[in-house]
Design a protein around this nucleic acid. Sequence first.
DNA 1: GTCTATAATGAGATAGAC
DNA 2: GTCTATCTCATTATAGAC
Lengths: 211, 211
Amino acid sequence: MADTKTRILDSAEVLFAERGVEATSLRAVTTNAESNLAAVHYHFGSKEALIAAVVGRRLRPVNEERLRELKKLNEKSSKPASLEELLEAYFKPAISTLDNSEQGSLLAKMMSRLFWESGGETRQLIVEQFSEVWEGFIRALRKALPELSTRQVISRFHFGIGVLIHALSQRGYEEDPKMPSILEKDPERQLAVLVAFVAAGFRAQVPERKK
Amino acid sequence: MADTKTRILDSAEVLFAERGVEATSLRAVTTNAESNLAAVHYHFGSKEALIAAVVGRRLRPVNEERLRELKKLNEKSSKPASLEELLEAYFKPAISTLDNSEQGSLLAKMMSRLFWESGGETRQLIVEQFSEVWEGFIRALRKALPELSTRQVISRFHFGIGVLIHALSQRGYEEDPKMPSILEKDPERQLAVLVAFVAAGFRAQVPERKK
DNA sequence: GTCTATAATGAGATAGAC
DNA sequence: GTCTATCTCATTATAGAC
């Protein structure tokens, strides 16, 4: 059996994803981890700090891989990276990490929840985790799409993030007949579909004025 | 001053959006509404019921307008409605309602939060509110895009919903330099940009197999 | 490091006067 | 319909034994 700290992290991750962060009590976390309330405070200090640890453990490797992929693209040749390459570099780490983890869809839901649920301190955490990655990708996307204004690039990049988050977080609801599954089963196809959709959106022409 | 019931709804809407539903206590709601705890239980019965009332009050008119617009498109001519017309019918009620309400961005955030935060009962509420609308739009979208499979239409429709939710919910963070504003100021342009992005995504060709 | 026991707080809900 | 006061319960956090 893993050590107490890890068991608490694992347990918290599952429960945060299933019920949401606010709705999950530390008691539920520790019971599930076959530990006790005091252990959380010994290892993490507070519930807020536990949340940060749970998020950081999963998000850090994803964003590190994104930066590595981006660096590879930037150094690869004198030509700027293409739109599709950049989107793939951004989406792939998220999709593959989620597939390799035993938690699977739960993790995706936890991340998307965190994105919205966070008020105040937790939001700060998210912004910090992402700011370097976003800056890097937006800079590269501007080079790939010189015909778009910076503002348009940022806007459409966020549209793409919205697609990713929504798609990932709807996993696990496949059983519901009212909410048919969104993503393909095969991770390679998932990635291809997402990249194709968002890339086409990036290249869309917006009509000048409404008729 | 509005009656107590309305003041409670207004207050709850603002606080739910700012802090999240779980994190908002009924005490905070009633203090803000210059009322008291008992009034919530008199008018609504429970916190869960209050949540449902807050959501329903805003969501119902939006979804009713969507269904009206869809009906208009279906009856307009013998030709099936175009992709752009359908997307506009879906997006416009959300954008214009949000602009007309004095709460503005708070309301958008409340909706997007609800979409994710909801575990169990509250999720049920969301699915019920949306199922008729989604069914109608997916049926119409299939006619507009006969070259796509039903599964692809559903998947891409949800991608579009992801874009809408994400875009709307990021309103109000404009002050943060790390998170530049996503949407145009002008609602007409917002709509045009969203429709163009999602329509292009719908029409994207997905490469058959990865190289 | 781990645990039991308990403190301190805040939550949703309710009774009953007005 | 509205309000104060209170009930009951669950939460985070901590003290202190081992």
